[in-house]
Each structure stands twice: as C-alpha cells, then as structure tokens.
C-alpha cells in the first residue's frame, strides 16, 4: 500500500481532498528499516513522527534494568507523537520487529503543516489527537492490568 493510500485511510485525513493529500504525501520521508533497528530511542530529543507502512514495530519501556514491551504496532499506525506535541524527550523506544517500511515527518514539517491551509492543519491535528487518544487507551489498559496483576 502506498503512503498516500495509508494516509487516506487514517481517520483524520480521510476527508482531505486529493491536492491536500498530495501535499501531505510530499512532507513525509520514506525509508526501509531492517528487523531489530531502533527507530526512536527513549530519552532522545528528536521530534519526528513516524507512520508504519509495512511490517511491525515494538514499543519498549524500562522496568528497572529490564526492557518490557508496552505495545506492538501494525501497518497504518502513526507513532512517536508525544514529543511532537510537548517538545520533551522520548518516553519509550520503538524498534522494528521485522523488516519494515516507515514514512517520517520531522518537527519542522509538522509545524509547517499545522500552519498550512485550514483543511490540512485541521486534518493533521485531528489525526494527531486521535492517534494520541488510541495510544493512551492502550497504555492505560496495560497500566490498569498491572494493578490487577499486583
């Protein structure tokens, strides 16, 4: 599936017109990621967001000296969004579990999109908010599970 097709399926972007989708498509940089490669690292100060096109990505946190898998992401997921919003260091590490293709949007391009024409800015902010909400639900369910497991 192409980046443009993935974007068009994201809830926030599905209402965009073709020209706006083309502008979004052009803002992302695509790359191949081998299995095991770190895409974002906890504590780092980079502020890019990523869209998983194919493959699978694990989200990992620390518990003492051990690494725990917080989440597992499939194609069509936007990830690495929190630092894009709050400008703070990365909270977790994301690593490709299998050979994957991702498309990345750096903070400068994201800021540009936020100040773009209204339809793109609104669609981008809707998609960002929606993905953050889904990420929060997944993590909150895990945190609640810990209470039950304790």
């Amino acid at each position: 599936m192409s980046l443009r097709e993935v974007l068009a399926r994201l809830p926030g972007f599905s209402r965009l017109e073709a020209a706006d989708l083309d502008a979004l498509d052009a803002a992302f940089v695509r790359r191949e990621v081998p299995a095991g490669q770190v895409i974002v690292r906890a504590g780092a100060h980079d502020h890019s967001a990523h869209l998983l096109l194919t493959g699978e990505v694990g989200v990992f946190g620390r518990h003492g000296d051990q690494e725990v898998e917080l989440d597992r992401l499939g194609p069509g997921t936007l990830f690495g969004l929190v630092p894009l919003v709050d400008d703070a260091p990365r909270t977790s590490t994301c690593r490709a579990l299998v050979p994957s293709r991702i498309a990345s949007l750096d903070r400068g391009a994201a800021t540009l999109l936020s100040h773009q024409t209204a339809p793109i800015a609104l669609a981008f902010q809707r998609a960002l908010g929606g993905e953050l909400a889904r990420e929060f639900r997944r993590l909150d369910a895990r945190a609640r599970g810990l209470v039950g497991a304790g």
């Binding site: 946190g61 919003v85 709050d86 977790s92 993590l139 909150d140 497991a149 304790g150």
Partner: peptide, 20 residues
C-alpha cells in the same frame, strides 16, 4: 493527552516487579 500518556508509562515503569 501527551501528559497523560507520559504518566501512564511512568505507572508501568514504576509498578511492583511481580506485577510486571
């Protein structure tokens, strides 16, 4: 929501070892 996500990750990372 970004702040709540950071708190949720913090809850997981500081939970009791047997729970994890």
């Amino acid at each position: 929501l970004a702040a709540r996500i950071r708190r949720a990750i913090g809850r997981i990372e500081t939970a009791r070892p047997e729970s994890v």
